[in-house]
């Protein structure tokens, strides 16, 4: 049923640290890998080795340049996947009931056997979190790796979303936002976790941690700096200096370059 639950027992979601993300796209690859081989229709590619490759992904990394009023511009890598919104507009627009938000943990899922591929949920999502698979004709979206997090066949350390498990810089965190003492709740509170497009009224569960303020170079030169000898650019004297001059006089250097 595409009516949203009034409240969910748990609110599972991600914290994404924009300060830590290095933009390596490892989470994109692990997400595509896991979700192609496991739950639901595989994430297909069209013309993958041709001149215009395209395909279905549940997680994509943008990069933005931010220019502050003073100081150098900052480059910020920006992973984007489903935010598992509390007031998910993608769910209520679904005509077939294929889209739903789970009461027990708040995960937004698509029942692929009910999806008619009308695409309206993708239109209703402001974040671009849903993509219609061109091969299967059904809507694909992040499942928060629902087939990993409860999977008792996996070692305990693997029972988290593939993107979180693979992130080499620790920029992605998984947990329950309904529990104020959870790792993700504390992290979000401490670092000012923010909603994307709050004016859209979707109440996203996933939070983004803003980049920490950058260091300034003003007045921060090391006290020992004046005593550091400058690095000699070219050997002038001694054996190396003589060798450099002697070799420079010999013919055979590349044309037009002396010494």
């Amino acid at each position: 049923m595409t009516t949203l639950p009034d409240s969910t027992t748990r609110k599972l979601g991600l914290v994404i640290d924009l300060d830590t993300c290095v933009g390596c796209h490892a989470c994109v690859i692990s997400c595509k890998g896991w979700n192609t081989e496991n739950y639901g229709a595989p994430l297909s590619d069209q013309n993958p080795y041709g001149s215009d490759p395209t395909g279905t992904f549940l997680n994509r990394i943008h990069s933005y340049e931010v220019q502050p009023d003073t100081g150098p511009a900052q480059l910020i890598h920006f992973p984007k996947s489903c935010l598992h919104c509390e007031d998910a507009p993608c769910v209520t627009v679904c005509p077939t009931g294929a889209s739903y938000k789970r009461t027990e943990d708040g995960i937004v899922l698509v029942n692929e056997t009910d999806c008619i591929g009308c695409g309206l949920c993708a239109w209703a999502c402001p974040y671009g979190a849903r993509e219609l698979d061109a091969a299967e004709g059904v809507m694909k979206k992040c499942t928060l790796c629902v087939d990993r997090i409860y999977n008792e066949n996996l070692p305990e350390e693997d029972r988290e979303p593939a993107c979180v498990r693979t992130c080499p810089s620790g920029a992605r965190h998984f947990g329950d936002f309904a529990d104020p003492d959870s790792h993700v709740s504390k992290l979000s509170t401490a670092r000012g976790g923010m909603d994307l497009m709050p004016e859209q009224g979707t109440k996203p569960v996933n939070k983004y941690l803003p980049p920490r303020p950058k260091d300034s170079w003003q007045g921060e030169t090391d006290v020992l700096a004046p005593w550091l000898a400058p690095i000699d650019p070219e050997p002038q004297g001694g054996f190396l200096g003589w060798l450099d001059r002697a070799l420079g006089k010999l013919p055979g250097d590349s044309a037009g370059k002396e010494g």
């Binding site: 924009l18 943008h62 220019q67 920006f78 983004y208 803003p210």
Partner: peptide, 13 residues
């Protein structure tokens, strides 16, 4: 607002 980065400065894709 889409990126939440507007508080730092001007955002460009």
């Amino acid at each position: 607002t889409a990126t939440g980065l507007g508080t730092i400065g001007t955002v460009r894709a």
